[in-house]
Amino acid sequence: MARSEIRLSGSGGQGMITAGIILAMAASVFEGKKAIQSQSYGPEARGGASKAEVIISDDDIYYPKVMNPDVVVALTQEAADKYCKDLKDTGLLIVDNLMVKKAPEGKFKVIGLDIIVTAAEKVGKAMVANVVTLGALNALCDFVDHSTLEKAVLSRVPRGTEELNKKALAAGAELAKAAK
């Protein structure tokens, strides 16, 4: 893998930035690859379109921003409309089936997943949608080992929520397998 550019987007407060941090951390701290996480943000603390960007590479990464993403995840319609304009033609757009009614058109591949519904109903907590996202994204793109990702998740989540988050990560991976 030379260089992968990933953009995780949704609305502020959905945990996309945390998801980006966990993915980059899994790749760099736990697997020794190079990774950078960055974000851009506006004045709002909650709501509004929000994105986190991750670059994973075998080589040193200098320019820290995503130029043309290989993968975009969008958990809201606004994010989908706003953040996949520069997605590579060969890239992948992952959208949430509930929130994104109309996926933007392009040459890229689109996969719709029940991320939010799975988090809320199958795992039991809407809050873990970001971890479900991570599980699905990684199962589809194979950035890091599932076990590494789980380690990274567990190192960042509040104590007492470990089982819930493990379940969320596994549920995300299941979603992806079904969609493959």
């Binding site: 941090i21 951390m25 760099s28 990774a35 950078i36 960055s38 820290p64």
Partner: peptide, 9 residues
């Protein structure tokens, strides 16, 4: 802001 807010290992 870029260096202040980006994350690296």
């Amino acid at each position: 802001e870029i260096i202040g807010h980006m994350r690296e290992a």
